[in-house]
Write a protein that binds this DNA or RNA. Sequence first.
DNA 1: CGAACGCTTGACATTTGTCAAACGGCGTGG
DNA 2: CCACGCCGTTTGACAAATGTCAAGCGTTCG
Lengths: 240, 240
Amino acid sequence: MPLATVNLRSVCTQCNLKELCLPLGLDNHDLEKLDGLIAARRKIKRQQHLYRAGEPFEAIYAIRTGFFKTDILTEDGRDQVTGFQMAGEILGMDGISTDRHVCNAVALEDSDVCMIPYDKLEELSRRIEPLQRQFHKFLSREIVREQGIMMLLGSMRAEERLAAFLLNLSQRMRARGYSALEFNLRMTREEIGSYLGLKLETVSRAFSKFQDEGLITVHQKHIQILDSEGLRRLIGRAPI
Amino acid sequence: MPLATVNLRSVCTQCNLKELCLPLGLDNHDLEKLDGLIAARRKIKRQQHLYRAGEPFEAIYAIRTGFFKTDILTEDGRDQVTGFQMAGEILGMDGISTDRHVCNAVALEDSDVCMIPYDKLEELSRRIEPLQRQFHKFLSREIVREQGIMMLLGSMRAEERLAAFLLNLSQRMRARGYSALEFNLRMTREEIGSYLGLKLETVSRAFSKFQDEGLITVHQKHIQILDSEGLRRLIGRAPI
DNA sequence: CGAACGCTTGACATTTGTCAAACGGCGTGG
DNA sequence: CCACGCCGTTTGACAAATGTCAAGCGTTCG
């Protein structure tokens, strides 16, 4: 796999994502130290892998632009999408555990990431306390995010899962300054289904039902949320 | 809630769990520094909470003896067990993200934990590189563990889930020196069901089916694994 | 000894998956 | 530029898996 790295100095100091990304909360002095850390930027074309399960783990990645999915494929043919990641989010933290990547990371659109060499990050976070704290929070946030998915997969029915998925996406879009009520999905129905533990037909039917009920409009990948309160209500009513 | 702390110096240096727990891989010199960190031991009776969702996060806990479950309860009445933890395992890392515990930790039998104040752990892990590395691996391992559950909840059917659950439990028992093929469950069918995204009746039926097929014997909480290879085969055959 | 709790089992309901057909948008090549 | 073909999506009919409700049993613990 050719390393499509770009040898730009990646300037956290000037990055417009610094309020979402790892540098969150660092002061200017610390930010300058961080600038030395980021080795390279890397461009990933749609459908290309950022990394693959089994590859040696060397770096985590901060997404500057673009959209990714992470998934796990087992020998027996199971395929589970474990997450979708957008700009400002961090990828690859599962690799720390075994020094090898556990899942695959695939770009769902042409993307641009900051490569953060892990040994340097550990070294720097020993010297910069706020960075250490921030990094730990990111790791923990990933644990909490996955607990949310466990909740979703373990105790919600199909339509509740899809509603929760849409609301989560919407909220993350807003956090990044995009429209929270109108956006294009970057993933297929099958990928959504894999993420939500459903078949693509079930996802499609749920989309149609939401549309019939006036909660959203769907045209292929284009989604418009008409009644986000209605979607929330859908989740809020647990069965018994 | 009364803090049932015991003011023993907790001696990692002499703990027989140090090969499983956070000190894993530390040399004697570093272990001694760690001894100063562990503030207190704490005894938790069966059915009592070690911590509750929403409480301020101050420490993580290493289990010395006993057995816990972690779960999340939502306002709308959903209840999801997010994990079962046994001796040598670490509890509470989800709290780092928001400085509050996200889930509840409940003892399923009388238990004994080491309380590790989080601010001291961060401070110490800035000074002891192997401790930092180890702590990061523990955080990452939790991420990977949860990905395994996502896989289970998202792509396995009831019997596969239960087989995976039994094999995982068995493997962890072995790692701790207990019999891997014969043990007592500490949790109810309902708790297993919540963890696996199933109803307790489905869990019970699957247990009965495994027994009919000669894979295990079940008497209430007592489990004997007769054919672990058979259980593995059950998982290995993905649908399609 | 009795009550409460957890477990098992049966009959039936509901949800979701499976298979199949058809539609539509998009990109490619003529 | 248009036509064709591919891929992703939608929808329907039916099948399978799991949930629901209910009854009864065994253990355990007060």
